[in-house]
Amino acid sequence: MPATVLAALPATLLATLARLGRDERAVRARAGIDASALSDPDARIPFAVHARLWEEIAALGGDVGLELGERLGTAALGVVGHAMSRAETVGDAWSVLERFRRLVLEDAVPRLHVEHDEAHVVQPLPARFARLRHPAECQAAATITTLRALVGARIDARRVAFQHPAPPSIAAHLALFGTRDLAFGAAVNELVLDASILARPNVRADPALRDYLVRRAGALEAELGDDDRIADRVRREIAAALASGEPSADALARTLGTSSRTLHRRLAVEGTSVAALLDETRRQRALALVEDPARSVGAIAFALGYRDATTFTRAFRRWTGTTPGAWRRA
C-alpha cells in the first residue's frame, strides 16, 4: 500500500508559508495539490505528493526550513499534535508522538533515546528527502520550538548535527538552537538536549483532554488497518539505524519486538531478507546522496553505515556499474 501522510502536515506547511509572506498558492499549484484535499486535517494524502511539496518549498531557498519549523507548532501533527500539547510532561508528550508515528508519517517522526544525561532526538528522513536541506532543518527547528512551548521557557540544545553541508550563513541556526556546537556533513540529523527536560511539566497540561485526543488518534489509526508489511517496518528501522553502523538482524528483531528467527521467517514469506532490504535501503539513499556534489564519498559511506569509502565504492559499482565520482560526472 503506498505511503500516506496526515493532511494536517502539508496543510500547516502551506498555511505557515503564507504567514511568512510566500506565495503558498503558487507552491501548492506547482506541487500539484488541490486545496480541497487539505480541507480535512484527519484525511490522508499520498507521500509522493507531500514529497513534491517539499521539493517546491526547498526551491524557495534561504532559511525557509528553519523559518517554517519555528512557526509550525503542534497543529502540523493534527490530532496527535493536539494531544501532545495537553500531555502532563514533555516525556508524556513524546510518548504520544512515538505511539502514533504511523498516523503522522512513519518514516519522518524523530526517534528519541537517552544516554546518560542527554536526550538524543535522531531525525531519520525518507530517501527522497536525503538531498534536501530544508526538511531536516524544519524538523529540528519544529522540535526545539515545540519543546519550548511545552515548558513555557527557552531551552537550548547542547549540540545539533545535520547530514547536509553547511549553508552560506549559519547565523540563524546559532540563534535558534542556542549552541555553537553545530555540525554539518554529519552522519545523522540529530538534536541533543539535557535529558532532564523530559520530566518537566507541560504548562498547558490537561489530562482529560489529552486522553480524549489520544482516543481520537487511536480511532484514526485503526482506520489505517494493518497493511504494514514486516518488510516495510524493517526498511524503516534500517534507515534509522544506518548512521550508527550496519544493523544486525538480531538488533532489528529486538527493535521490532520479535526474535531473529521469526523475523527471518516472516521476511521469507514476503520474498525478501534482512540482507536484501539493507542493500536496497543503502542503494536508494546512496543514489539520492551522491546527487549532492558537496558531500564527499567518505561522508556518504559513513552515513550509510559502511566501514570506509572503499567498501561503499565497491557496493556502488555493483549497483550501478560505475563509481560515485563517475556517476556524478555523467
Rank of each mutant, 00 (worst) to 15 (best):
Ala26Asn: 12
Arg28Gly: 11
Arg28Glu: 11
Arg30Cys: 06
Arg30His: 10
Gly32Pro: 14
Ile33Ser: 05
Ile33Gly: 06
Asp34Gly: 12
Asp34Val: 12
Asp34Thr: 10
Ala35Cys: 04
Ala35Pro: 13
Ala37Gly: 02
Leu38Met: 09
Leu38Tyr: 10
Leu38Asp: 00
Leu38Thr: 02
Ser39Ala: 15
Asp40Asn: 15
Pro41Glu: 07
Asp42Val: 01
Ala43Thr: 01
Ile45Gln: 05
Ile45Pro: 01
Pro46Leu: 04
Phe47Gly: 11
Phe47Val: 10
Phe47His: 06
His50Arg: 03
Ala51His: 08
Ala51Asp: 14
Ala51Thr: 12
Arg52Gly: 09
Leu53His: 11
Leu53Phe: 11
Trp54Tyr: 10
Glu55Val: 00
Glu55Asp: 09
Ile57Lys: 03
Ile57Trp: 03
Ala59Val: 03
Leu60Tyr: 06
Gly62Cys: 03
Asp63Phe: 00
Asp63Gln: 02
Val64Arg: 01
Gly65Tyr: 02
Gly65Phe: 03
Leu66Met: 08
Leu66Asn: 02
Leu66Tyr: 03
Leu66Thr: 08
Leu68Lys: 02
Leu68Ala: 08
Leu68Glu: 08
Gly69Ile: 08
Glu70Asp: 06
Arg71Pro: 09
Leu72Val: 04
Gly73Arg: 00
Gly73Ala: 09
Ala75Gln: 13
Ala76Thr: 08
Leu77Asp: 12
Leu77Thr: 03
Val79Gln: 08
Val80Pro: 04
Gly81Thr: 07
Gly81Ile: 00
His82Arg: 14
Met84Asp: 05
Met84His: 00
Met84Ala: 14
Met84Cys: 13
Arg86Asn: 11
Arg86Cys: 11
Glu88Ile: 02
Glu88Gly: 15
Val90Phe: 02
Gly91His: 10
Gly91Trp: 00
Asp92Asn: 06
Asp92His: 14
Ala93Asn: 07
Trp94Lys: 04
Trp94Ala: 04
Val96Trp: 12
Val96Glu: 07
Leu97Thr: 00
Arg99Gln: 15
Phe100His: 11
Phe100Ser: 01
Arg102Ala: 15
Leu103Ala: 08
Leu103Val: 03
Val104Asn: 08
Val104Gly: 06
Val104Ile: 15
Leu105Gly: 05
Leu105Thr: 03
Asp107Met: 05
Asp107Gln: 13
Ala108Thr: 02
Leu112Ala: 13
Val114Gln: 08
Val114Tyr: 07
Val114Ile: 14
Glu115Ile: 05
Glu115Asn: 01
Glu118Gly: 01
His120Trp: 14
Val121Glu: 06
Val122Asp: 11
Val122Leu: 12
Gln123Lys: 05
Pro124Val: 05
Pro124Tyr: 10
Leu125Ala: 07
Pro126Asp: 04
Ala127Asp: 15
Ala127Asn: 08
Arg128His: 13
Phe129Lys: 10
Phe129Cys: 04
